[in-house]
Deep mutational scan, measured.
Amino acid sequence: ENVVSAPMPGKVLRVLVRVGDRVRVGQGLLVLEAMKMENEIPSPRDGVVKRILVKEGEIVDTGQPLIELG
Rank of each mutant, 00 (worst) to 15 (best):
G70A: 12
P9H: 06
P44V: 06
V25K: 01
V25W: 02
R45I: 04
K11V: 10
V17T: 07
E40T: 10
S5E: 04
Q64L: 06
G10C: 14
L29D: 15
G47Y: 14
Q27K: 04
G26H: 06
L69W: 05
G57V: 08
L66V: 07
E56P: 07
M37F: 04
I52A: 03
S43T: 10
E68I: 08
L66T: 11
M8H: 06
E1Y: 15
N2W: 06
P42K: 10
K36L: 08
G70C: 14
M8L: 00
D46A: 06
V12W: 14
V23T: 11
G26V: 08
V4Q: 00
L69V: 02
D21C: 14
G47D: 05
R22H: 09
G10H: 01
I41C: 15
G20S: 06
R45D: 01
L32A: 02
L16W: 11
P9L: 12
E56R: 05
V15M: 00
R18C: 14
E1M: 15
Q27P: 04
M35P: 08
E40W: 12
V54T: 06
L69P: 02
G57R: 00
G63H: 07
M35I: 00
Q27V: 13
R18E: 01
V49R: 15
G63Q: 12
D46K: 03
N2Y: 11
V15S: 01
Q27A: 11
P42V: 06
G70N: 03
L29E: 15
K50H: 04
G20A: 11
V17H: 02
K55G: 00
L69S: 00
K55M: 12
R14W: 01
P9T: 05
G47W: 10
V49G: 12
V4N: 10
V54D: 15
I52Y: 00
G20Y: 13
E68C: 14
E1C: 14
V49T: 01
N2A: 08
G28Y: 13
P65A: 10
G10F: 02
L69T: 10
L13G: 06
L30G: 09
V48T: 09
V31G: 11
P44M: 02
V54P: 00
L32H: 10
Q64N: 00
E68G: 15
E68Q: 14
T62R: 13
L66I: 10
I52K: 00
S5R: 14
G63N: 10
L30Q: 11
G26M: 09
M35T: 04
G70L: 00
L53H: 07
V48P: 07
V23C: 14
M35R: 07
N39C: 14
G47T: 02
E58Q: 02
M35E: 08
V12G: 14
V19Q: 12
E58G: 12
L32K: 08
M35D: 13
R24T: 01
Q64W: 05
R24K: 10
E1L: 15
I59H: 04
D21V: 13
P7K: 04
R14E: 03
G63Y: 05
K55A: 04
V25G: 08
K55V: 02
A6N: 07
I59S: 00
G63A: 07
V60P: 13
V19Y: 00
G28S: 00
L30R: 15
P44L: 06
P42I: 06
N2L: 09
G63E: 02
G57Q: 08
I52T: 11
V49W: 15
V12N: 12
E56Y: 09
V60I: 04
V49A: 00
L13R: 09
G70Q: 02
V54I: 05
V19L: 12
D61Q: 07
K11S: 06
S5I: 05
M35S: 06
K36P: 10
Q27I: 02
T62Y: 05
R18Q: 01
P7M: 04
V49H: 14
S43N: 00
Q64V: 00
G47A: 08
L16S: 09
A6E: 02
D61K: 11
I52W: 09
V60E: 14
R22I: 10
P65G: 01
R51Y: 01
G63D: 02
S5G: 06
I52D: 01
I67G: 02
